[in-house]
Design a binder for these strands. Structure first.
Lengths: 152, 152
DNA sequence: GTAGGACCTGTAGCGGCTAGAGGTGCAAGC
DNA sequence: GCTTGCACCTCTAGCCGCTACAGGTCCTAC
């Protein structure tokens, strides 16, 4: 609802308006997620409203946990409003699935940790269930190993 | 239940027995999480049962999502069985709290994403709720920004 | 004696930033 | 006009917890 004019924003303006750190905006540019803006004579970045919108989009998608690859794909889609939105929907659904599986894994973890701390008798380390559970070899069944990284 | 002898294990033995990649074991050593084992004449690592136990402990704690700093602290505690286990308990409880807050945040995320994909009319991108929600500026309230990183 | 594994070191990359050093531009106040 | 001081600039390195590769050495089995 502001003026539609393409007033030149500084990088600091973008940072303030989107709650992003200046360094991060520059990083998105190096990264290719944000397009390089024109510069002033003095070499400073001069952004337009379109840049501001794009950054807001990126930050919002990131807050929703979309990986940057997905964010770039969504941005690409949003640049072409005549395409069917099935692709955007698929990205979102896939991400939702990923979030749900993370929740499930974390809940299994939570249960295991809760059992562990409940069993702690507050005695000495030598008799501590927390330590024993961690040291216990025969615990392979608890959590599926996954492909790499803890994932959580 | 194997022999208690300190038979020399190769790094590959440790990897097989704990389901860890060889590179990761070497990485734990550089990192200081695993102590450097003695070497054979040919310069290869020769591990003892104690090393194997320690690695199993580390991997188990990591599977439970403890950060390596916590793992090192827990290992340090377990080396001294006469100390009270309150510290171990505190680490575990704190981690449990962290896991619970991650679950809560992910569940908020899940709800938001579910709303988003439910609203998708499978039309064109120009009218897509998924894209609109992401582009929507007035969405600041949804998720607290946190200190850094998406955290999820 | 030779083939092929298991092992060695060192380095660089992932994702998604964050933080610093060391320098330049620019606007406001005196 | 000159200074102060902030905002901006580039470049580099660090975070976590690995993973992977390159290019070499050792050891064992045939």
């Amino acid at each position: 609802m502001q003026a539609m004019s393409t007033a030149p924003y500084t990088i600091g303006d973008l940072a303030r308006q989107t709650g992003t750190k200046v360094e991060l905006i520059r990083w998105y540019e190096r990264d290719g997620t944000m397009p390089p803006p024109p510069r002033t004579e003095g070499g400073r970045r001069a952004y337009t409203q379109a840049h501001l919108d794009r950054l807001a989009f990126i930050r919002h998608a990131r807050e929703l946990g979309f990986p940057l690859d997905d964010v770039r794909a969504l941005l690409h889609l949003s640049d072409d409003p005549d395409r069917p939105c099935d692709e955007a929907d698929a990205i979102a659904r896939q991400h939702l699935g990923a979030v749900r599986s993370r929740i499930a894994r974390l809940q299994a973890l939570e249960a295991e940790l809760a059992r562990m701390v409940d069993a702690c008798g507050h005695g000495k380390v030598g008799a501590c269930r927390v330590i024993q559970v961690l040291a216990d070899h025969s615990h392979e069944h608890c959590l599926h190993p996954g492909h790499g990284g803890t994932g959580l």
